[in-house]
Every structure is written in structure tokens, then in C-alpha cells.
């Protein structure tokens, strides 16, 4: 129980529908980067939503730093130190960039710390500094992406969960995005990554977690997953054809 995040026998689903995540267990240690791969509908996004508290688990428990979080509200879980970047661009399109950054730092009680963190984020992403008064939704895709990742550096969470970061992005932006993720990981934040571009995801991660039909199939160091021919054919097949 010394790991940062413990997921024990988690089962989750939507409304009256079937279980999407079934009896799933996973642990995550400090500064670890794990990439969850698996076919569409495997329950990867649902898993992240359950951890973040957007979706209440049907059964099972989730512990963060020894504290049970599976019954907490999403904002409480976020304030404990788990930041979730969902598939849809997690910015407020009708707010200005400055207001978006203020919202990123909303959970930081100390105003001075909040301001300092926002400054840090702007230093990291100078484009945002030049566009503070612009309505966020009118920026280019790449700039919006920077705003999304600025959140990680503003909040400095213990864990960051990213759902399909490269989905719908131009190839050059995919590269930029993975650079941001590497940057986040190297600052000591643990990362759970769900990525359809499995090879790119595994190259970034320490561990590969394969999920199918809501269940954990196996977990191995990412390098082994990448090198294992049979695994590549089974789970990374599509990516290889490209």
C-alpha cells in the first residue's frame, strides 16, 4: 500500500448500461509513467473518468496516497493532486487565456503561490503570455494545446492522467504534445497515459498496460511490449501497418 495510486478490483459503467471496466486493478508509484493501450471500447477512458471521480465506480476501491478517493467528488480528488485532462480539449473556450490560467490555479488557496505558478507556466509557454487577453477558443489548435498542458505546471499535481492526447491533432502537434508530456514526466509527476497511437505512447512511458473488454490483460515494461513480436501483432498491429 505504499504506492501513490492503488486501484483495487474497480468496476464501472454508465447509467443502467453494462460494466465497461471490470474488476480492474492497477498500482502507480511516484514519478512512474504508465501507458494504457487496448482496442476501442476497452474501457480506457472510462477507467480514467472513474479515477478522476467524474464517474462513480460501481464497486472496488481507489486509494491515493493511502486515502480512499473512490467516493469523493471530482473536485476533491483534483485538489488532492490528481489532474485529469480529458479527450475533449479541457479549456474554457469563451474565457480569455488569462482567465483560463486563473482557473487552472483556482484550487491553489495561496494567491501569491497561484500567481507565481501562473508566471512559471507562462515562462514555459511564452505564446500564452503574448495572448493573455485573447479568447482562448480563438487560438490555434497548437496554442490551445499549450494552454491545456500549462495546467500541469500550474497545479503541479502528483499524478496527471491524459486521455488520447494526440487524438485529432496534426502530426507536428502530436510531436509537440509528446514533448510536453515528457517534460511533465521529467518534472517528477506520475503520468497515466491513454493513447491510441500505441507505439508513440509506449515510447514515452515506463510501463505498458494492456486493457481489453474492461479487464487488465497484462502489464509489462514498455520496452518489452514494444520488442515482443507477438504482442506487437496482437495489440499494436494497426500501428505497425502504418
Amino acid at each position: 500500500m505504499n504506492s501513490l495510486l492503488n486501484i483495487n478490483n474497480l468496476t464501472a459503467g454508465y447509467g443502467y448500461g453494462p460494466d465497461i471496466v471490470r474488476d480492474f486493478s492497477l498500482t502507480l508509484n511516484k514519478s512512474e509513467v504508465k501507458c494504457i493501450i487496448g482496442p476501442n471500447g476497452a474501457g480506457k477512458s472510462t477507467l480514467l473518468k472513474s479515477i478522476a471521480g467524474i464517474l462513480k465506480p460501481r464497486s472496488g476501491e481507489i486509494f491515493f496516497d493511502g486515502e480512499k478517493i473512490s467516493e469523493k467528488e471530482a473536485y476533491q480528488i483534483m485538489r488532492l493532486g490528481i489532474c485529469f485532462l480529458p479527450q475533449e480539449r479541457a479549456i474554457f473556450p469563451n474565457l480569455t487565456v488569462a482567465e483560463n490560467l486563473r482557473m487552472c490555479a483556482y484550487s491553489i488557496k495561496d494567491k501569491k503561490v497561484a500567481e507565481a505558478r501562473i508566471k512559471e507556466a507562462i515562462e514555459m509557454f511564452p505564446v500564452l503570455g503574448q495572448r493573455l487577453k485573447q479568447i482562448a477558443g480563438t487560438m490555434s489548435g497548437g496554442q490551445q494545446q499549450q494552454l491545456v498542458y500549462a495546467r500541469a505546471f500550474t497545479i503541479k499535481p502528483k499524478i496527471i492522467m491524459i486521455d488520447e492526447p494526440s487524438l485529432g491533432l496534426a502530426p507536428s502537434l502530436v510531436e509537440q504534445t509528446f514533448n510536453h508530456i515528457t517534460q511533465i514526466a521529467s518534472s517528477g509527476i506520475a503520468v497515466i497515459l491513454v493513447e491510441q497511437n500505441a507505439i508513440r505512447g509506449l515510447e514515452t512511458a515506463g510501463y505498458g498496460v494492456v486493457m481489453d473488454l474492461g479487464k487488465l490483460v497484462f502489464e509489462k515494461p514498455a520496452k518489452e511490449v514494444l520488442q515482443d513480436q507477438s504482442l506487437r501483432e496482437l495489440y499494436l498491429g494497426k500501428a505497425l501497418e502504418k
Partner: peptide, 13 residues
């Protein structure tokens, strides 16, 4: 604008 996004930056919606 977006309840879920607000919740995810720590707003008690």
C-alpha cells in the same frame, strides 16, 4: 461553459 472541465480544475460545481 463546461461543468466537467470546471470540476476538473477543482471547482466545487
Amino acid at each position: 461553459q463546461n461543468r466537467t472541465s470546471a470540476e476538473l480544475v477543482g471547482v466545487n460545481v
